[in-house]
């Protein structure tokens, strides 16, 4: 049992309410290491609610079901605890954080993920940078990754997501993924706001990281465009708060050709 659960994300009959209204109505889905799942659905079907709920956004109220990673329930954990267990959400709308540079943020995040903060707390080291990866070591690592994503180093001195273009934001998300090395990554509408060049760079980054880290991927998208670059083995149709149909990659073509109308006819309430 332990073996099969290792690095596996299991969502079982998940029900979620937002401001009193039930949005997720029994989601069940399993993502294993190395697998790529696409979750496709029309606007308003609850896709983003699912991704934010998995990451632990406080706005979403769980009314039933279970989410497990490595066989451990995530539901009682804070977002940072979930992240430290290997869950990553590349957000559709990354928020800007004025005053905090991308470099400061990346260093804080990577240090937290690698246990530097805990180590400093335990040893009682009060120095300002005690909870951080040594600057020189981290700078080298960041520079290597930033080059692979064809980003300019000047980026690192800009405030996090502040004034970033759509493409820059998404690249910065993938940069974070590269440094934080998750086990399960959720990409929430990562293709929105990307031109074709940026889409290619971002997808290549994701594919490379999946090959390196063996992570499981859950790609949430409205369109098939991204799936030309990140090839899923499993495709799920998400409709009215749950997965209504699962199949192989051929389902992408069908949705592209026929749209979502037949879904409503077949699975609508």
């Amino acid at each position: 049992m332990e073996q099969t659960l290792a690095q596996t994300l299991e969502i079982r009959d998940l029900h979620v309410r937002v401001e009193g209204k039930e949005i997720l109505k029994g989601v069940t889905l399993t993502v294993r290491p190395g697998e790529t799942h696409a979750l496709m659905g029309p606007n308003g079907s609850g896709k983003s609610t699912l991704s934010y709920t998995l990451m632990g956004h406080p706005k979403y109220e769980i009314v039933g079901g279970e989410v497990l990673l490595n066989g451990e329930s995530l539901l009682a954990l804070s977002p940072d605890e979930r992240a430290r267990r290997g869950l990553f959400l590349a957000m559709q709308y990354p928020v800007s954080v004025p005053g905090v540079t991308l470099y400061t943020f990346l260093r804080a995040a990577a240090s937290a993920m690698r246990g530097y903060g805990e180590a400093a707390r335990r040893s009682g080291d009060q120095r300002l940078h005690a909870h951080l990866i040594p600057a020189r070591e981290f700078r080298q690592e960041v520079n290597a990754e930033i080059g692979k994503l064809k980003m300019d180093q000047a980026f690192l001195n800009r405030y996090l997501n502040e004034g970033f273009s759509g493409g820059e934001k998404k690249r910065a998300e993938i940069l974070q993924m590269a440094l934080l090395k998750p086990r399960i990554a959720i990409l929430d509408e990562t293709d929105s706001g990307l031109d074709i060049d940026a889409l290619r760079i971002v997808s290549e980054g994701v594919n490379r990281l999946q090959a390196e880290l063996g992570m499981g991927l859950l790609v949430i998208t409205h369109y098939q465009r991204l799936l030309n670059y990140i090839r899923p083995e499993h495709v799920h149709i998400f409709y009215n708060g749950r997965v209504v149909h699962s199949a192989g990659p051929e389902l992408v073509e069908k949705l592209e050709a026929q749209g979502y109308d037949w879904v409503q006819a077949e699975f609508g309430v």
Partner: peptide, 12 residues
Amino acid sequence: FYLQARGIARYD
């Protein structure tokens, strides 16, 4: 939420 989602504890 964004910072926490990257593993940074709430207080930090």
